[in-house]
């Protein structure tokens, strides 16, 4: 079972957490302010590799944490 290491609570199964999404990153090539808003609100990098995401420890300390992990690999493998 995938696990996440919460700095407050320790290693916990992924079902204790709520996924909050990766940090939005609007590409610089989009310059129109309205288009940037649309991209910020809806679009995702959906990276196949290293990502930086926010997770909420809903069943534990109820704090947000930043998780850097590799989406190419199984489970919650962190980025080294």
């Amino acid at each position: 079972m995938p696990e996440l290491d919460c700095p407050n609570c320790g290693l916990r199964p992924i079902e204790e957490f709520t996924f909050g999404g990766e940090r939005p990153s609007v590409p610089d090539r989009i310059t129109d302010p309205l288009e940037r808003d649309v991209d910020y609100a809806w679009m995702h990098d959906n990276v196949n590799g290293a990502t930086s995401e926010r997770w909420f420890h809903a069943a534990g300390c109820r704090r947000w944490l930043t998780v850097r992990r590799n989406t190419s690999l199984t489970g919650m493998t962190p980025v080294e």
């Binding site: 407050n8 609570c9 320790g10 290693l11 916990r12 079902e15 204790e16 069943a59 534990g60 300390c61």
Partner: peptide, 21 residues
């Protein structure tokens, strides 16, 4: 409980117990 309880005492542990926070 599907996670490891802390070994030191006293200690607070938070998480799902029988699927309930």
């Amino acid at each position: 409980i599907d996670w490891a309880l802390p070994v030191e005492r006293p200690a607070l542990a938070q998480g799902l117990v029988a699927g309930v926070p």
